[in-house]
Write a protein that binds this DNA or RNA. Sequence first.
DNA 1: CATAAGTAATTGTCCAGGACAAATGGTTGA
DNA 2: TCAACCATTTGTCCTGGACAATTACTTATG
Lengths: 327, 327
Amino acid sequence: MLAKPLAAPLFSISAVERDTGLSKDTLRVWERRYGFPLPGRDANGERVYTAEQVEKLRAIKKLIDRGQRPGKLIGLSLEELRERSLAADAIAVDAGAAGESGLAEAVELVKAHHVDALRQMLRQAMVQQGLASFMLETAAPLNGMVGDAWMRGDLEVFEEHLYTEVMQGVLRSAIAGIPAQGRTPRIVLTTLPNEQHALGLLMAEGMFAMEGATCISLGTQTPVWDIVLAAAAQRADVVALSVSVAFPANVATDALADLRAKLPAAAELWVGGSNPGPQRRPVGGALVLRKLEDIPGAVARWRQAHAPSTAAAGDAAPSLRRFRARI
Amino acid sequence: MLAKPLAAPLFSISAVERDTGLSKDTLRVWERRYGFPLPGRDANGERVYTAEQVEKLRAIKKLIDRGQRPGKLIGLSLEELRERSLAADAIAVDAGAAGESGLAEAVELVKAHHVDALRQMLRQAMVQQGLASFMLETAAPLNGMVGDAWMRGDLEVFEEHLYTEVMQGVLRSAIAGIPAQGRTPRIVLTTLPNEQHALGLLMAEGMFAMEGATCISLGTQTPVWDIVLAAAAQRADVVALSVSVAFPANVATDALADLRAKLPAAAELWVGGSNPGPQRRPVGGALVLRKLEDIPGAVARWRQAHAPSTAAAGDAAPSLRRFRARI
DNA sequence: CATAAGTAATTGTCCAGGACAAATGGTTGA
DNA sequence: TCAACCATTTGTCCTGGACAATTACTTATG
């Protein structure tokens, strides 16, 4: 349609919506109310955002997701926003400092684009630590560090892609090596539509597989209705969703409530990932797994509750009730 | 937000957007133009859709995704819409009869949701045939059949997801097993933004790896600008893109021209996949690889043209000129 | 002094209805 | 058979108003 004249990438309003998680309506109303962002217009009178604007919007969104308010943030410069981010990250930074175990080195490899070295390092770490602690102590924190670095603008998009691809390869081949035990629960795994982050899902699959559960992964981005169909077709005991920070929290909450309502009552809904939505306001009837470490316990609990000797199929054992706050 | 009165489940416009994949704007404009759906209004004057309306919308959307047009569909009843779905399936049976090589059987496994059986069958086929012919004779045609079946509505979205996930696992572990030879050309692989089809990309990666080329995959959906950055950072000799049928042809053509203009002249641009755009109107300066089978030849040609003894770095050898129609 | 209740400001989503470009379908001429 | 043209269809974007849900602040009360 239009050949871009040069290296200044511009964004349409829908591109910005996709990149920031802020709805078109919100973007327009901010412009009206706060005077930011003030995009240019193309020949057709449609909004055209610059990369800087998008970056600032992303920084603002990140802080909003942590509970701060738009009105107070919009006036700040990108630097001031980053400061606030870092202040809020204080805890995360601590964790980063604690990671003396070569994690920082791995991030450096990403920045230096040493793909092979990174892959080798990760494989080696996995062999040394075993899959379980590799995921818990290496993959999960590394994901967090890479995600933070990307948020901070420390990493280019393609560098994050490189990392994701390498880590995905390492995790997938590891998971493929876990012997299928075919035990219950049967777990259908996926992410919500527009949620592209596959690594959280893969790690969850790995954890479940190590517990001997039967995993059926649908990959990323399954429409709610198809999750329901898949759960029925696979006679799933559990539907497990991974929801990343990047995903709009309120959309997640709504979609989860919707999904819960459509799933058969006998199927449980487990939600993992770093998204603040489900963590702050748990959806009724969904079990929130804050960390990968919670997975073995959840599986054990499920098995205890569904032990063939004690409970008949269909009614949840009392011990589980605590974890399912009905609306 | 709103507690549902159990008897008649009603849907807000955002719930319908989630469930059907039709945007709020589209829902409103259909109402204005076609008089369907005509939702009720709540106390606040906001649209309230019934479950029947949502179901019909979903049926319509499914047919639209297969290429039918809204205007022709909206007048039909739910039963008539279902008929059309089934009518399209009739052809599917024919096509199924053609595949004698066990491929039809694989598709049946997908429809029956026998994930484990499918995985086992694919792995076995790969061991028997070897990676090369597995990809050419099994994976590639199977992809086509699954894609066709999905287009026809023969497969649900989640069934296509299941297939993709299983095949991806099989291919990835196979590719991981190819010893890295580290030879030239260095190839950066990815897909364009909004192009989610990962299987074509993986198969291309496998083919390249078997030729001993150095593959750096960015995964799917890399923005054009980041492809350029990645190519520079990796000192790529070739950028290889996979563009599926599902991808809008003209968008592909534009994006490719854009990419070609931004890439350094020394880097070649190779385009594969089943998309008709590049095949019909080749982008200047891009080499179109119609089939996976073309890959070994392309690599061989590149090596011949860049043989260290004959040509200095930077200028393409004459034998290559034929494949690069400059604008 | 703390807590509850009420008021004010903030903020996201929805609405109407106009406009327009991209995509599609059909027609004509080479 | 193919290319070029015109008409129609269709999704997205626009403006600017409205309102309910949330959050922050103030005041009355134990």
